[in-house]
Structure formats: C-alpha cells, structure tokens
Write a protein that binds this DNA or RNA. Structure first.
Lengths: 343, 343
DNA sequence: ATTAGCACTCGTCTTTAAGGAGTGCTAACA
DNA sequence: TGTTAGCACTCCTTAAAGACGAGTGCTAAT
C-alpha cells in the first residue's frame, strides 16, 4: 500500500498530538484537529490502513492510536520541522569566558536539561587527535616528579611520577628540553616506538624516566580511560509517566549515575559521521539497552580540530524532536563559536 | 513515665523487627519474637505506654507500631550493636595503589553502595589547611601562562592565566623563584595582604602578573568552589517502598545529581567534631530538606593532617544502623591506613 | 469515496462487600 | 497488682461487580 498525501497528513497529526498529550489519539480528535475536513469515520479507515502498514498501533481495542517506532522514524526522517531555539543563557554564560572546561560542560548540561525537560549528557571533548603543546617535568619532592602536559585547546593533564634515583636540576632541564623538542606538536598517535627509543638513547642513564614519562603521558591522554561525562536532569524522566515506573526509572537513573554505559553512546555517535552530526535513536535503535523505552538524540560538537565531544538528550519516545534537534543544532553551533572567539 | 528494662527490650524488638521488614509490628509478633515470655495483651499495654512516650507510633488504628524519629534516636544512641564489616574488596583495591584520588573515591563510593544497598556519597578531601609545596609558572603560548600549584598530599591544581605583555624566559624564572620562596610551605590562610604587596613590589613592572597568579592560586585552592563530591547507588532508594514513590524519589535523585546540596551535609559534618567522627541524622535532623524522609549517616575521614573529607550513606529511616556505622568505621580506618602506607 | 449510525469492546473509575490484622478494653486469674 | 484471655471494634487491603465512556469496526445510505 502506498502512503498517500492524506495518510501522511493524518499520521503527522496523530504523532504531533501524541507528542503533546501522551495519550492515545482517537479519530474524532484528528477529524477536528486537521484542516482536511474529513469525518471521523474516514479517519478511522485511514487509521486502520496506517496501522496495517505499521506506523501506528493500538494499546488495546477501543483505544486510540499511538505512533510505533516505525512511525516515529518516519516522522523524524521526513516530517520534522526543526524549531531553532537560541539559548540566551548560554550566550551569556559563554561571555563569561569559562576557562574551566568541566564547569562549562556541566553548565551546558544543566541548561539543556532545564530548557528541554529531558535528561541530558555531555561528554568532554576527546583530545585524541590533538597536538601536544607543552610538556614540563618538575621536581616536587625528593623522589617525585610532576609531569604536566598541555595539549592544544589548553587541556591540562598532570601526573606524579615516582623515581628511584636522584636527579639534579641540570638533568631535569635536559630532560625537559629533550621531551619538548621531540614531542611538541605531535599527536598521541604520532609517537612511535622508534621515537621513544631514540629519546631513551639520548637520555642515557635516565632512559627509565623517559619511559615513565611517556607512559604517564599516554595514560593521561588516553581517551577511553577518562572519558568524562557530565549529566543533568536525570530526574526529568519522572515527568513522563511512561518512564516513571520504578523498574524503568531505576534502570535509567542507574545508567546515568554509572555513566560507564553512556560511553557506548558517545562511541557510537562519534563513529558515525554521515549526517549533520545529529542522530536520533528511537526505542530499540539505541546502543544502550536500558534505554530501549526512550528516544535518544545525540549531536557531535567540535572545538577546533580533532576535539570532538557528544551531547545527548534522553527522553520518552514522544519527545519533542523538532525542539530537541533544533536546540542541539544551535548549541553545537554556539560551542563552535565559543572556541573561535577564545583562540 | 520511666523507661523500664522491659520497655526497652520491647522497643528494641519492635525496632529490630521493623528494620528488617519495613512493616508495622504487631503485639503478637513481639510476644513470640522476644524471650520475655509475655502475652500479646501485656505487650499491647506496654506498647500503648511507649506510644504515649513518643517512641513509637501507629500509622492508623488497627495497625501495628513503627518507630518514631525519637525511637530511632534512642536506638542509635543506646541500643545499637555495631557490626564490624571488613570490606575485602577495598583492601584489594587499595593495594593497587590508586594514584588518582578521584578514581579511588569513586570506587569507594561504588563499593559502599554495593555493600550496603543504600545511596552513598563521598567528598574529596578539602585541602584547606594544607601547605603549598610547589608553584610553577610556564609559558604555553605567546600570552598564556600555565600556573601549576602542588599542595601537600600531591593534590595538583592548574590554571591558565592570560597576560597582556610579553615575558622573556629570564623574567619568568625570576617570578617562579619569587613565588616559591615566598609561598612555599604556607597555607592559603597564611597568605596575607602584606606578603602580597611585598611580592608585588619585588616583581616591579610585572606586579599585575603576581596578582593574577595569586588570584589563580586562591581560586583553585578555594575549598567551597570545587568541593568534589562523588555519589553512587542513588537508585538503591527504589529498594525501599517508603522512598520509592515518584515525588520523593525524584527529589532525592535530584539532590544526588546536583550535588550542590550535598555540600551542606559535608559542611555540617566537618564542623561538628565531638564524637568518633560518625554522625547519624534521622529524618528531620538532616541539614538537607529533601532528605527529611531518610536517615543519613556520615563519617569524617582523614588523610594525613588537615585533609579531611566526608563519607555519607543515605537510606530509609529503617536503615541497618548497626551495619552502616560499623562499615563506616572500618572504611575510614582503612582509608587512614592507606594514606600511611602511601607516604 | 465519504459519512452517519450503531453495536460492541475494553480500560477506568466507583461502589460494595468480604477478609483480616491488630488494637483497646473488660473481666478473670495468680 | 501485674498478667492474660476474650471480644468487640477499627480500618486497611483486596476482590468483585457495575456504571461509564471513549473509541473502534462495520454496514448502509448519500
């Protein structure tokens, strides 16, 4: 069966209505709601067709229809009208020039949650492809060195390294020069074994320290390990009765608290880069099993080259996709702007 | 009316039973439960007295009794038998010598939540009274300086400072020496205005940089600002029907997610140091309004001198106080040990 | 092709009744 | 005087029954 123009209009009306109310939509509602001027009986026939085609379903006989996952999918793919939404607060916030990345991200998550009434998450940008800008070893104690690594984008990583032998200031200076001349401007991937052994050779008896330092750098830069994820508004799910029962709420809250599982979402989003950077997962499409009764909309944001993070909005399947997608587009754009102004 | 020996025994039996089951306790249950060998009628009379005295209450006529806050308080103060509980996993975990403080704390929170089935929080130790061990300014870009401050206990703080004028290496070195000679070994409180102006004078035309640096140090050390709090097991509250309804659950979850409000709990706990370091807040006694239906047990742990943090366990009023207090005592002790072995 | 009409379904809400746990009180007992 | 058995009473919980109504599917008329 074909999806006639009229069927599309009716489906759209059903979904729009359901998004608002969360209640099954009856034929009479649509008959009044749309400008099609059709009687409820006609709508009923069309609805029957739409159900057969799998776009809508009935919770039980004698109830109205609700969209199926397939219906939502069609809606998101073809019928959505993005509502652009400027977040004024965000602008103001960014004007304050938040130097601390983590603060900024927490704020963004919070703001998004407050504006959308859904649960939100944001992953700190991974610095995978980013270049080392500055390395410094300092002695903080007799046998402890502090290794500071700054990568492009002014992300700072620290590590305390314990060393056995003593080091005089001169040697330390030499090591610093050695490390900086060899590693500055490189990304983590570009540091290879040959380079490391060359450095070790030059370091002579202190080669073990070089090894330690490089390990430390690798460990601290390593993306998977400390993929920081900030969340907000998890309790928003209680606004939606279809998610608010104990079983489901508990699972979702747990996912948000553990954060571990959210990394899968980030990975999945970052790996797929066909479209505009916005992805919509409806129900079972989500990579996180515990969210199979939700819809998840994710966006990739980019701060300069190679620094990419993910923003995710998690809500009921009947979320306001138009608003969410619009908001996400705006916000990723604004984050982009922020970075440009900062550098 | 006096609390006779027998009344105490009965009250204890009621509370113990209610802690287990969460259901109002009837007279017949107690009559069988205890070794007092009294008929249910006698128990009823005693219960009536206990209710009049405010230790227990009836949800409605013809229901059993449940402990009142006053009853719980008496239990905690005089009748509790701490169950010592070693956390084997914790020992193992600590053996791995987690260098990263935040990882360790997250792990502890998680472990506690898993072991107790309550929600847990742990605040990172505040470094309030701690001494500055090492300061270093480095140039990372034309007009950007990186200020690294290490305080005792190897807690590292970074700040990027933007400077207008250019600085040559020599000046930077001088500034570093200036800062270190003046500030090393001092706590934040000990840095006073006189000292600052003296340093500014010595810095000459770069006095503004000194000011910036000190601001940065103050900002990064400041305790209230970045009182990191890690939480775990918030979804455990769903295990307890009396907390699991939407209204309450949502509030509690929110408190846990925002974390902001939890700082009050930390402040309160740290400020009061009469007892063993364990505090029990029952119902309305808690400083956090949203937790008035819960009980909160907090403990102060200490890592070396002056580095103190708070561990909190949040559960229903009928929590297993014996177990929780015992566990907290053990864990603070173990953390103490950890620190000793580390240094 | 559209629509009015109507019987039918089925979830929701309300009412009613039965069941039962637990109490308070009274009177008897040691 | 303290303890206990007995009993009426309360009130929550659960189940069953019925009323209600929203919404459907089908049929026949337009």
């Amino acid at each position: 069966m074909q999806l006639s123009e009229r069927k599309i209009k009716i489906l759209q009306a059903i979904i729009r209505n359901y998004l608002e109310t969360g209640e099954p939509v009856g034929s009479r509602t649509i008959s009044k709601y749309t400008d099609l001027n059709l009687s409820s009986a006609t709508i009923r026939n069309e609805m029957s067709d739409l159900e057969e085609m799998g776009y809508i379903l009935q919770p039980h006989t004698s109830a109205g229809r609700i969209p199926s996952d397939k219906g939502y999918r069609l809606y998101v793919d073809t019928m959505m009208e993005e509502k652009d939404r400027e977040l004024e607060e965000l602008k103001e916030m960014m004007l304050e020039r938040e130097d601390k990345m983590d603060h900024l991200l927490k704020q963004v998550a919070k703001l998004l949650a407050a504006n959308t009434n859904y649960a939100t998450m944001i992953s700190a940008p991974t610095i995978h492809t980013n270049k080392i800008k500055f390395i410094q070893l300092s002695r903080v104690d007799v046998n402890q060195l502090l290794a500071v690594v700054v990568v492009e984008g002014n992300v700072i990583k620290n590590n305390i390294i314990s060393v056995s032998g003593e080091l005089d200031d001169e040697t330390l200076l030499k090591l610093n020069i050695l490390l900086n001349t060899h590693l500055n401007g490189l990304t983590l991937e570009e540091i290879n074994l040959g380079m490391i052994s060359a450095m070790k050779q030059q370091a002579g008896i202190h080669s073990d320290i070089v090894a330690d330092v490089i390990d430390a750098i690798a460990a601290s830069i390593k993306a998977e390990e400390d993929l920081e994820i900030y969340t907000s508004g998890a309790n928003n799910i209680f606004r939606y009765p279809e998610l608010a029962d104990q079983q489901k709420a508990s699972e979702i809250i747990n996912t948000f608290e553990e954060k571990q599982m959210l990394t899968e979402l980030v990975q999945d989003t970052l790996s797929d880069e066909k479209n505009t950077g916005i992805q919509v997962y409806i129900g079972n499409e989500t990579p996180i099993q515990t969210m199979k009764d939700c819809s998840v909309v994710t966006a990739t944001y980019e701060l300069g080259e190679g620094m990419r993070g993910t923003i995710g909005i998690i809500g009921p399947k009947r979320m306001d996709y138009d608003k969410v997608v619009g908001t996400l587009k705006t916000i990723t754009h604004q984050l982009d702007e922020l970075y440009k102004n900062k550098t």
